[in-house]
Simulated assay, not measured.
Amino acid sequence: MPQHSPRELPEGDPFGADTLPYGVFSTAGEPGRRRIGVRYGAHVLDAAAAAAAHGSAYAPLLDAPTLNPLMAAGRDVWRAVRAEIRGWLDGPHFHALDDVTLHLPFEVADYVDFYASEHHATNVGRIFRPDGDALTPNWKHLPIGYHGRAGTVVVSGTDVVRPSGQRKAPADAAPSFGPSLRLDIEAEIGFVVGTPAQAPVPLEDFREHVFGVCLLNDWSARDIQAWEYVPLGPFLGKSFATSVSAWITPLDAFDEARTAPPERTHPLLPYLDDAKAEPGGIDLRIEVRINGEVVSRPPFSAMYWTAAQQLAHMTVNGATLRTGDLYASGTVSGPEPDQLGCLLELTKGKGPWLADGDEVTLTAWAPGPDGTRIGLGEVTGRILPAR
């Protein structure tokens, strides 16, 4: 086959000049040297080498082993670097994507997971609380979330070991210990914080603090979760692994995909009221595959709570933001049977669940300028047996 230039992208490639996601890579020739790359089609632009060759003032930020220094530099720098990168796409500093090793692109400071889909929350409530209200009384008034474990966030392609823990079905006389029998996925969107903050972040400052967007799979052990989650919520059932894409797509790449969230059914307190704010939803179309078979296509546009509202709520009590903070949308589910973002919903809690050896892959895209597509890097993980 003829060798094509990285500039010759196939029609419809979601990783064109309007996307340009950031990652961290190394090569076989320099396996110990990690530096920042930018995906362009099926190639990776060595941003550090290109910046040095062009005498860019931002070369030190791009020669870092993580995205954190670039993310901490703030939105003006993010926009300037992105503009310069577009001018480097005709240069020689490319590697084939298949020839590089991708790494976790940023050092995760804190991790928070939300519960922002009304469809998901309603479906799960009916399964977990069949005799009670599907939604808790607070759900329409604030974005519910929990503080997860940053140390078990892993990059796409990392195998996931089946977790063990306590389990107790309603008919069991006592809890037992062993590998999870109800291992599940959660198809989510992650938001990566760049600029830190020492005070609450209002809705209108969302763009000043969020660097980019990624796909995320918050693996869940439903039997461990069901036994432990009352009264304090998720813990061991969630903290064993969270998979993220190797690519972080800049927030500004989604301007064409902005959309209004679903109609609010309850009045919101002023710090969450986005009635006069820019549209806070994003029209992201997610696809979930298990062992190559499509099982769901959840629409992110259906999410009740927006990422800007989540950030405002996460900081309103005075909690600070740090560069590298990661917060996730919670499971993305739509109103249709083929739009559910986890097996718990897809099977109404009955299974089948993930088996050892199963491989789960999430992909997603959003509408871009002039009919283009904006891509999110895939998230893949394979289940290994419990240790």
Rank of each mutant, 00 (worst) to 15 (best):
F94M: 00
A134R: 03
A83I: 14
T27S: 14
V44W: 03
R33Y: 13
R289N: 11
H43G: 02
C214P: 02
V77F: 15
A221S: 06
A48Y: 10
A83G: 15
A28H: 04
N317R: 13
Y111N: 01
D218G: 11
R167D: 07
G29T: 09
E278G: 09
P60I: 02
L236P: 08
S333Q: 09
R285K: 14
L343T: 01
R297C: 01
G29D: 12
R264M: 15
F206G: 12
A64C: 03
K276W: 05
F206H: 14
R322K: 15
L67S: 06
R373Y: 01
D255R: 13
R33T: 14
G212C: 03
L104S: 00
A50H: 08
L183R: 02
I383F: 10
E378H: 10
E11T: 03
L284Y: 14
G16T: 05
P261L: 04
P163C: 06
Y115E: 12
E186Q: 05
T265I: 03
L102Q: 09
T331G: 01
P92Y: 04
S296M: 11
A121Q: 01
V192E: 08
K276Y: 08
D133G: 11
H103I: 15
G37K: 02
D358S: 12
L354S: 08
E256G: 00
E287Q: 00
W247E: 08
F191I: 04
R129D: 14
G351Q: 03
P196R: 06
D18V: 05
G330W: 09
I374H: 05
S333Y: 06
